[in-house]
Design a protein around this nucleic acid. Structure first.
Length: 504
RNA sequence: GGGAGAUUAGCUCAGCUGGUAGAGCAGCGGACUCUUAAUCCGUUUGUCGCGAGUUCGAUCCUCGCAUCUCCUACCA
């Protein structure tokens, strides 16, 4: 399908490409050559030679070959400067026909004058420094490798339209050093986490993305259909139940970094597909997990930023200090001290109070669930410094092990940073009969109208019946972690191709 | 789902109380051998998001629609 947004600038460039094709035909060449192999990159050259004075540099005759996108061009009659950008950064070319080795120097220079910003070009030459001290390449060979048909955004202001930045991320990446830095940081975060897990004897695994029964979380799934089996399938909402099957199988430490899909709303904190790192370690519990998760996140921040003391949206965020730990009730008392302990243990009071915030709790919600709801309304958004919230009620934690001391609460935590949930972990429920009973309760809740309640997963129960060692497991939301580490306000800024409505 | 705002040249943006639209960049032509968003001279480019309505006349006022952004809700 031809592009519908043709304009006179593109038309001009198509004419130039046509001439390039014809010229290539005459000379036995091709319009889109692929025989140039750059041997150097911009930033490495600056690092290695940027410190030399020209009097030292030029006599050394450092020959280099580079390639990249032409971002700026300044023609001054018989000599020109051009700025080329490769994957590492930018370097300036000094182009004069006097320096060309090819005998057609006049023709090459004339064609160069008509090349456009955005074209991919290649150059060979020697390094020198200009009068103003900028490291540059005195070009002896110059080639056009790829003609660009579409004009770049305005060279000074760059791409400003947020919609285009998301839809045409390739243009955003060309134009914005900041966007490139964000996704480089994301890559560093993911590889740091992977290294951290491998260093701690975890095995990286891949479990199904297509589930016959959605499980492992409370969320609405995407539904799809398998033609050959003529069956409904679900895009996974969490890998949890499969990872625990692996622990049953004897892989005592496993982790998976991959996508989850949830058929829910979009916001600056939610994308329909998002990345989780979920891990399980046999013979550990939620206390061990909190310590481990904390170290993992700190390592990721240091890998990406060089420090664990960050700035987020203009406010300091210190990941170097030990993360705080508060119970749900303790967090309410700290951040909403207007409530008395008596009120916080009064289900009727809580129910009325939560209604004031415009949220209607389920009729079957118990004291713990009501306390949690009030926590979410009053305290959650204030948890700027990393804080583990613990003592989640059993009724909202159908996969977590109950506390040995108090059967109403679980050995579970959620980690909040900058007012957002970043991680969720718990000592796993490994009592198959208890798990079966909890699934039955979920099925009942579903029948009672709770659409996000879980399904009964008979194979998972069968797996637990073989015996799963006592285990701790946790999931870390990678996108939100990267938001935090890269000082990004929206989840869309840390996802290369965020979900968008189709173009009109 | 609810609310607020945005949409003007390829890009970045102006456009007064309603009288059919401008600048800079990019493009095209020219000058220029150390520029840095190069500079200087000349010059091309518009379904003013889409569709109705009010009006002699709508980029501007009204209504509807589309997309995006932010807030809010469900949620991680």
């Amino acid at each position: 399908m031809p592009a519908v947004d043709e304009n006179h600038v593109i038309a001009e460039r198509r004419e130039k490409l046509k001439a390039i094709r014809e010229n290539a035909k005459l000379n036995g060449g091709v319009a889109f050559p692929n025989d140039f192999k750059p041997e150097h990159q911009a930033v490495a050259l600056h690092a290695e030679f940027g410190g030399f004075e020209n009097e030292v540099l030029q006599p050394r005759a450092v020959h280099v070959s580079i390639a990249g996108r032409m971002m700026l061009k300044r023609v001054m009659g018989k000599a020109s400067f051009a700025t080329v950008q490769d994957s590492t950064g930018r370097i300036q070319l000094f182009v004069s026909k006097d320096n060309f080795t090819d005998e057609n120097s006049e023709a090459i220079y004339e064609s160069f004058k008509h090349w456009d910003l955005g074209d991919i070009i290649a150059a060979k030459g020697v390094l020198f420094k200009t009068k103003t001290g900028e490291l540059s390449v005195k070009v002896s060979e110059l080639r056009l490798l790829t003609k660009s048909l579409r004009p770049l955004p305005e060279k000074f202001h760059g791409l400003q339209d947020q919609e285009v930045k998301y839809r045409q991320r390739y243009v955003d990446l060309m134009m914005s050093e900041e966007t490139r830095a964000t996704f480089i940081a994301r890559s560093k975060v993911v590889s740091a986490i992977r290294s951290f897990m491998l260093d701690n004897q975890f095995l990286e695994v891949e479990t199904p993305m297509l589930h016959p029964i959605p499980g492992g979380a409370s969320a609405k799934p995407f539904i799809t259909h398998h033609n050959a089996l003529d069956m409904q399938m679900y895009m996974r909402i969490a890998p949890e139940l499969y990872l625990k099957r692996l622990v049953v199988g004897g892989f005592e430490r496993v982790f998976e970094v991959n996508r989850n899909f949830r058929n829910e709303g979009l916001s600056v904190r939610h994308n329909p597909e998002f990345t989780m790192m979920e891990f399980y370690a046999a013979y550990t519990d939620y206390l061990w997990l909190m310590d481990f998760t904390e170290r993992c996140i700190r390592a990721a921040a240091i890998a990406a930023c060089g420090t664990a003391v960050l700035q987020y949206q203009g406010r300091e965020l210190d990941l170097s200090k030990p993360f705080q730990r508060l119970t749900i009730v303790g967090a309410i008392q700290k951040y909403a001290p207007q409530y008395t302990l008596e009120q916080l243990n009064d289900a009727d009071f809580l129910r009325a109070e939560i209604l004031k915030f415009g949220t209607k709790p389920f009729d079957h919600a118990g004291l713990g669930a009501l306390q949690l709801a009030l926590f979410e309304e009053t305290a959650e958004s204030q948890l700027w410094e990393p804080t583990y919230i613990i003592d989640y009620p059993v009724e909202v934690s159908p996969l977590a092990r109950a506390s040995d001391a108090n059967p109403e609460i679980t050995e579970r935590f959620e980690l909040f940073v900058t007012g957002r949930e970043i991680a969720n972990g718990f000592s796993e429920l490994n009592d198959a009969e208890d798990q079966a009973a909890r699934f039955h309760a979920q099925v009942k809740a579903k029948e009672a109208g709770d659409h996000e309640a879980m399904y009964y997963d008979a194979d998972f129960i069968r797996a637990l019946e073989y015996g799963m060692p006592p285990t701790g497991g946790c999931g870390i939301g990678i996108d939100r972690l990267v938001m935090m580490i890269t000082d990004s306000a929206s989840i869309r800024d840390v996802i290369l191709f965020p979900h968008m409505r189709p173009e009109a």
